[in-house]
Amino acid sequence: MFEARMAQAALLKKVLEAVKDLVTDANWDCTSAGISLQAMDSSHVSLVSLLMRKDGFDMYRCDRPISLGINIASMTKIMKCANNNDAVTLRAEDEGDTVVFTFESADQEKVSEFEMKLMDIDSEHLGIPEREHTATVKMPASEFHGICRDLSTIGETVQVSVTKEGVQFTASGDTGKGTITLRNNSSVDEESQQVVITMQEELSLSFALRYLNFFTKATALADSVTLSMTADLPLVVEYRIEDTGYIRYFLAPKIDD
């Protein structure tokens, strides 16, 4: 038996918003530690890795590991039936082929139940090592969102350069070129407004803005986002989900042909 209850449906809605444009179907892997999901986009250019630890739930029970194969669009439709303040419970039998969503209104006067058929999803699991990166940039999530959106109007690719001066985002296209520079401002009082750059050496990498714009759908999940970069390795874009998990996106850099 798997059963997990979260106090606010809003959180699960935000998680779905953060994956639904990138992933069609995915296995939600549930264990006694929590729920995780790993999936590539259909072009296999990027990867999303979600973790929601059990301590982020009001109630959590998972007797044995279970993979819930879910069509993300169907789940999104069901979750739209929940109010943001509803409590939501997910429930699945060990050998079952459905997952049940229960929404309870804050005043407990309304209870809705939706049953969704599970799918058999054959997905390869990739081992993602935790590694030190050459440079990291922590910045307000809304700032990163704005930069990706603005530079998309100029070109398809952004060059991210980290130097002692700060981090520079540059896009160029037929109509011209745009450059946005952020300087380290770790002295700002409000932590969520800080731009914090760590760097072992200067680097410059290029990424497809199309995918970065998909990643910024997670903006509502966190105040800050962290970009981690190492030459010739995938960029990691991480949004922390409170203190109980994260959504991480990995994007292979564009390399000179």
């Binding site: 990739l126 390795l233 564009k254 000179d256």
Partner: peptide, 14 residues
Amino acid sequence: KQKQSSISRFFARK
């Protein structure tokens, strides 16, 4: 000209 590589190239299958 720049080339976009696949993400799976960077991680080993489990």
